[in-house]
Write a protein that binds this DNA or RNA. Structure first.
Lengths: 208, 208
DNA sequence: AAAGATTGTTAAAAAATTGAACAAGTTTAT
DNA sequence: ATAAACTTGTTCAATTTTTTAACAATCTTT
């Protein structure tokens, strides 16, 4: 069990609930029962009720759940209603794609800066956010206090930047590098996305 | 337990073992014991021995593991020694970044094609692979038999393309879209990467 | 006011994961 | 050559996690 008292598998499922509820809303539906939702999501109704019950009582007997209301509640649970400032470190192909591709506001974050070591990139705007030189990171963080950093840099430079960011008060990382942040900094929240690992697992599954 | 008889958590750890062994090799080391490796990876020695024992006996009493040999064995387990043909569907910011950023050959795949619906992209080369028009997908697949597809397209078009690809014999997906492939096609191998979900989980962790 | 539906909650069952222990076999040092 | 020090593969038990089933309480609908 987590420090929070909520198991990891529940937390992992939350964004999916959020997404499905968004779709139901789009379909114009107003209410849904755990049984209907379970059929759609390929879960058991029991599991859905239990998952939600970790955080409160959002349904009504005989009625089910109000879709919009439940989605809002899950948004609150996920903290989406209080966006946190985030910066992107590394604006190569990946960093740039992330900046373009992701709707940060809808995922609980507000992108306030991008940093790279390449002088030629400095000053460029991506989605109204300017690329700054990595040497200005300290100053920027002291002034703007980002909560989270998205690491789109190679493993080799990750440790140094991480140390720096953590000293500056950054508490969370979306980590695309293969540097093991959590191992060196157990006090910090990390979400890892490792394309390579995912591909290797796919390779495994296809080979066996 | 999996069809294969190997638990998911073991499979999830395999790429990390592979990476760590690669680093040890780079450091010029030739052998390592489960205890040393466990200290580096923040696991128990027992777990490492048990994980490896799922696939065979790769160590020697009193000696430990030969690093290069063990890495090779894990490569074989992951199927990295027999690269599978892969295609990228959707060459927007994300697809392009993936194509540039990932060393497919090192992860068990061989990138043989990229597809997009935008005429203006057709003919462009990315890493020596040409972008083709999505209308030529059928023909291409029948001739080249890709095993895996990397979906860098929006949810709305994913279902249709998936159906098409599966009919054409594609067995594995690296899925960046929010379409639930596994739900409609339980017979197919899928690795999901959902940036949005990861960000929301990070938001949750930072808010609680 | 009765019938039907569905939640929140509890408790049990099942499954997965972890950790400790040790015989058997290797290596290293003397 | 021998003994001491290591380290694996493997087993077993313990723990934890996850899932499922069940039902009283309560709401909705007719």
């Amino acid at each position: 069990m987590n420090p929070s008292g909520i198991s990891n598998s529940v937390i992992k499922r939350l964004p999916r609930y959020y997404r499905f509820l968004g779709e139901l809303k789009k379909e114009g539906l107003a209410r849904i029962s755990s049984r209907e939702l379970s059929a759609r999501m390929q879960l058991t109704a029991s599991q859905i009720r239990q998952d939600l019950n970790c955080f409160g009582e959002f349904g009504q007997q005989g009625y089910g759940y109000n879709i919009e209301l439940l989605q809002d509640e899950i948004a609150k649970i996920l903290g989406l209603d209080k966006p946190q400032n985030a910066i992107i470190i590394g604006v190569g192909n990946l960093g740039r794609a992330i900046a373009h591709y992701i709707n940060f506001e809808a995922k609980g974050f507000h992108l306030i800066g991008m940093f790279d070591a390449k002088e030629s990139l400095v000053g460029q705007m991506v989605r109204n956010v300017p690329i700054r030189h990595i040497s200005t990171l300290d100053e920027f963080c002291r002034e703007n206090m980002p909560h989270a950093a998205i690491l789109c840099i190679p493993k080799e430079v990750s440790k140094e930047i991480c140390d720096q960011l953590i000293k500056l008060g950054v508490k969370g990382f979306l980590n695309f590098s293969h540097y093991d942040i959590a191992l060196d900094h157990p006090d910090v929240e990390v979400e890892n996305i490792h394309f390579g690992d995912s591909l290797m697992r796919l390779s495994y599954k296809l080979s066996n």
